[in-house]
Design a protein around this nucleic acid. Structure first.
Length: 912
RNA sequence: GGGCGGUUAGCUCAGCGGUAGAGCACUACGUUGACAUCGUAGGGGUCACUGGUUCGAUCCCAGUACCGCCCACCA
């Protein structure tokens, strides 16, 4: 017997209970050895992370897919785990130490790493509990961590293989250096921000009594970074720039340091910009580095004037004056830095060219520098200005690794959805730069490279192997650096499944994965690198399809950020509206290629939808409609029952189509509209007469209807389950004894014969009902008033429907039994249903003028339609050239509207 | 500078060759035995602009304007 439900639905009461039940019964990963595998891997959240809206969207979409495929009988595996998140995690632990007046460097490396592991055990992984609250059905029994032993093995093996293949190498060049975190970072971790700054102009005096063609004895250079002039090694001019042709190959004497530096001809200098001469600091600027190399300066000889914290240090030529040593690169904590001091000295010595501008009144204003907006690189984690810094780092030859992924996308081996991202993908991949993978941190995968005393490098899986390579007697020191976090997460699609060990059945079955869902913001960070590593390690693409979704924005369209204070917490929404409502919101708003704007009212609306289903189920229970015992649609005779079976079939196909296309919005809207507008609004109303007091509860109609209604409701539970797992599971069990949980139920396969006559009959009843209600409303007749109706010349459909479904007609349209007699004369309103026109006498009740006006309005609308169609059909070009279907449809529509016009005219005539 | 996307009802968004839809909001009515987190009915749109292709354009093409994002660069 079905259990009885409370009158209102409270998500909090059921969510935790069902999640615990699913997880403890292994429902997320049922044993299905013979089933077709379906696999997705979850983008591993940072171990420091907590659930934000982006996660909520990303994981909802994945859970919808995995629950859908599980219901369809697949061996569905959703791999889950966490990322050790090198920089982020080390920062968290260091910040904690700082709060306790402690610091990392008070400990040995081993001690510190132990402390991070302790932190992880105690405070890490908050997000995994939060994902459970969202209802995500991942396989927690195999939860992964990128620093697990077997995962580390995969990382080291990949590194060693890449090294042996010449695809990882060590190089001395400029890197993006984060002086706060004191580590190198990759290009992708640098964010350009435009900030207000200054543009200074300096005189660099020419050496050896040389002058320019115009007689000047100095070269003017301009810079936004004056402090770097302490390490200038040249001045460059364009080879074709006549102004400087005479001094190319000569020298200038750098102010402050007195360094004698050459004037070079290099294409990099743009004659159109400023003076056309540019200072060259190979050790602190990416462009200048290239100019320096072209001029034959070896990386090792490039001057470096900053230490790892961006404080000034002595250059190798010893020319930086003592007063600069130890100064920060620029103003910090209110104290002047090297930048300010350089400007001050140059000004004092007459090498500064002041900037002259005019104020609003036209007066001349003289300043040290021109104010300018300057695009400045910032580290995405540390938040400080990135310093191009000359160091030895490990680089991955990304260009080589990118070739196969490019081909995979090009030839369709990997489909990117939406397709518009392909261009962006190609653009990046085809211009990809070497990937700096070493990080000067303690938390992470330590690079498996050892150096001998002579600096010789040995790369091996273990120290023993490295020692064997080096030979006995060589003292080895391991490279202190760790790898970029993304280097390890790039292995996620296969290292989580057992690679590189032999005989891994899980790997054989579940790699390649079937689909990857990720935000477009990590397309390059993660997705592209998985493609590279998938091809490199596994020889194939990690998945055939990549679905990219957008960002969840604040209600005003702004990006959510802590600093703006506009972050909406998904857990707060779950508390308030339930996880099902939040999930449904995410799905319904996810149309491909667009960001989602937060709209709390919409979440509320989907909570209401859940309540609606809850109450519909309560209604069913009160009429003895319980759990269905059949998977197939029951055989039905009653029109309403046949109709709903046909509708279930339709919505099921719609959802399947939408899911195949990854149109989450279309799938969500289909089940929403079906449940509310079809099942609740019409079907439940249509069957109410079957369960009325005077009906026989054991009669055939009641028995059949209970069977069909129970079945249809069950199909709703199944189809809605991927979107709203909690309430559907609850109601599934509330409906009666079940052989299995809904999460493991079977996707509908409602192939049933439904007669067209039956479905037409219901469509006819719906139209009659709607039109009657509308007419009553317009004429100001109480909706509840029961009216007599006459249909003297019924169509065949009308005659049989009136006979078979009289109770429904009477109840829904609020009519007394329809008479097929002539209507009595007198005032009446006239209501149509398809081709039939009902006469509803209202002598003394209605205002004839009002009814006339109503009919005339309808007549005008129909005439307008008919006229437009006539016009189109009388156009020879249309009839000849348009698609035959379009012409046929226009003809049918015209026939329909013409008939409508006739009916309305007749109705008006009857009113006199 | 290069690339991508957007502009449809008051708001948030679907639709993308046959004359416009949803949710919310709004208006009127409603204690009809599941549900007021509800029901019924209704109002509301020259689909940013200008050209072109087409029998026909919100939809395709070209351009314009405004908004947003990504990449590169600005010494």
């Amino acid at each position: 017997m079905p259990s009885s439900l409370p009158t209102t639905f409270n998500p909090a009461d059921i969510e935790a209970r069902w999640y615990e039940h699913w997880e403890s019964t292994g429902a997320f990963r049922p044993e299905r050895p013979d089933a077709e595998p379906f696999t997705i891997v979850n983008p591993p959240p940072n171990v420091t992370g907590s659930l934000h809206m982006g996660h909520a969207l990303d994981n909802t979409l994945q859970d919808i897919v995995i629950r859908y495929e599980r219901l369809r009988g697949k061996d569905a595996l959703w791999v889950v785990g966490m990322d050790h998140a090198g920089i982020a995690t080390q920062m968290v632990v260091e910040r904690q130490m700082e709060a306790a007046q402690d610091k990392r460097t008070n400990y040995s490396r081993e001690e510190f790493v132990d402390k991070v592991w302790e932190w992880k055990a105690e405070s890490g992984g908050q997000i995994t509990r939060q994902l459970r609250r969202l209802g995500c059905s991942m396989d927690w029994s195999r939860e992964q961590f990128t620093m697990d032993g077997h995962f580390t093995k995969a990382v080291l093996k990949t590194f060693v293989n890449l090294y042996n293949d010449g695809l990882i190498y060590r190089d001395k060049r400029l890197v993006n250096w984060d002086p706060k975190l004191k580590t190198a970072i990759s290009d992708l971790e640098v964010e350009q921000q435009t900030i207000p700054g200054s543009f200074w102009h300096f005189k660099y005096p020419l050496a050896d009594d040389v002058t320019l063609a115009d007689g000047r004895d100095y070269i003017e250079v301009a810079t936004t970074r004056p402090e770097t002039m302490l390490a200038d090694m040249a001045v460059a001019v364009h080879p074709a720039d006549e102004r400087y042709a005479s001094v190319v190959g000569k020298h200038v004497v750098l102010p402050i340091t007195g360094r004698r530096i050459p004037i070079l001809a290099d294409e990099h200098a743009d004659p159109e910009l400023g003076s056309g001469a540019v200072k060259i600091t190979p050790g602190h600027d990416f462009n200048d580095f290239e100019v320096g190399k072209r001029a034959g300066i070896a990386a090792g000889d490039m001057l470096n004037m900053l230490d790892g914290e961006a404080n000034v240090c002595q250059t190798s030529d010893g020319l930086v004056p003592d007063e600069f040593i130890g100064l920060h690169r620029f103003k910090k904590d209110g104290e002047a830095g090297a930048r300010e001091l350089v400007v001050e000295r140059l000004k004092a010595d007459g090498f500064l060219i002041p900037h002259v501008s005019k104020d609003k009144k036209g007066n001349e204003v003289v300043a040290d520098a021109e104010p300018r907006k300057i695009a400045t690189p910032f580290g995405d984690r540390g938040g400080v200005v990135i310093e191009p810094w000359l160091t030895d780092q490990w680089y991955v030859d990304a260009e080589t690794l990118a070739q196969k992924p490019i081909a995979d996308v090009r030839d369709g081996t990997i489909e990117i959805v939406p397709k518009s991202w392909e261009k962006t993908f190609f653009n990046w991949m085809e211009n990809i730069q070497p990937w700096c993978v070493s990080r000067q941190l303690w938390w992470g995968h330590r690079i498996p490279a050892w150096f001998g005393d002579d600096g010789e490098c040995y790369v091996a899986l273990t120290e023993e192997e490295a020692q064997a390579q080096a030979g006995e007697g060589v003292t080895l020191t391991q490279d202190p650096d760790v790898l970029d976090t993304w280097f390890s997460s790039a292995l996620w699609p296969f290292a989580t499944l057992g690679w590189p060990e032999d005989n891994q059945p899980l790997l054989d079955k579940h790699f390649p994965n079937n689909l990857l869902i990720s935000g477009f913001d990590i397309l390059f960070f993660w997705d592209a690198r998985m493609m590279m590593m998938g091809q490199y390690n596994m020889g194939q693409a990690p998945w055939p399809k990549l679905y990219l979704h957008g960002l969840v924005r604040a209600a005003d369209g702004a990006k959510m950020s802590k600093s703006k204070g506009n972050v909406v917490d998904p857990l707060g929404l779950i508390d308030q509206y339930g996880a099902d409502a939040l999930r449904f919101f995410m799905a319904a708003m996810e149309s491909q290629g667009r960001d989602i704007k937060m709209d709390e009212r919409r979440v509320e609306g989907y909570r209401n939808f859940a309540t609606k289903l809850w109450n519909a189920t309560r209604f069913c229970q009160s009429n003895g409609i319980g759990a269905s015992t059949t998977l197939k649609a029951p055989t039905a005779r009653l029109a309403a029952n046949q109709w709903i079976i046909g509708e279930v079939q339709q919505v099921c196909e719609e959802i399947e189509k939408a899911m195949a296309d990854l149109r989450f919005d279309a799938a969500a809207n289909a089940i929403y509209q079906f449940t509310w507008s079809k099942f609740c609004d019409w079907y439940l109303e249509l069957i109410k007469p079957v369960f009325a007091d005077d009906a026989d509860p054991q009669g055939l109609p009641a028995v059949e209807t209970r069977e069909v209604a129970g079945w249809a409701l069950d199909q709703i539970f199944v189809m809605l389950h991927p979107f709203m797992p909690f309430i559907t599971e609850e109601l599934w069990h509330a409906q009666g004894e079940r052989a299995y949980d809904l999460i493991l139920a079977q996707w509908p396969n409602p192939r049933a014969e439904v007669s067209k006559e039956a479905t037409d009959a219901i469509d006819w009843v719906i139209e009659l009902t709607t039109n009657t209600r509308s007419a009553k409303n317009e004429l100001g007749i109480a909706p509840g008033a029961k009216l007599a109706a006459y249909l003297p010349e019924p169509s065949a459909l009308a005659a049989s429907t009136i006979e078979r479904s009289s109770a429904a007609i009477e109840r829904l349209a609020r009519l007394t039994p329809v008479s097929l007699e002539e209507a009595p004369s007198g005032a009446a309103m006239q209501v149509s249903a398809m081709v039939d026109t009902f006469i509803i006498p209202l002598e003394g009740i209605i205002d004839i003028a009002a009814e006339k006006a109503r009919l005339e309005k309808a007549l005008a609308a129909s005439e307008k339609e008919a006229k437009s169609l006539e016009g189109r059909l009388s156009n020879a070009n249309f009839v000849e050239r348009a698609k035959p279907e379009a012409v046929d449809k226009a003809r049918a529509d015209l026939a329909h509207h013409s008939a409508e016009v006739e009916r309305l005219k007749a109705a008006l005539a009857r009113l006199g």
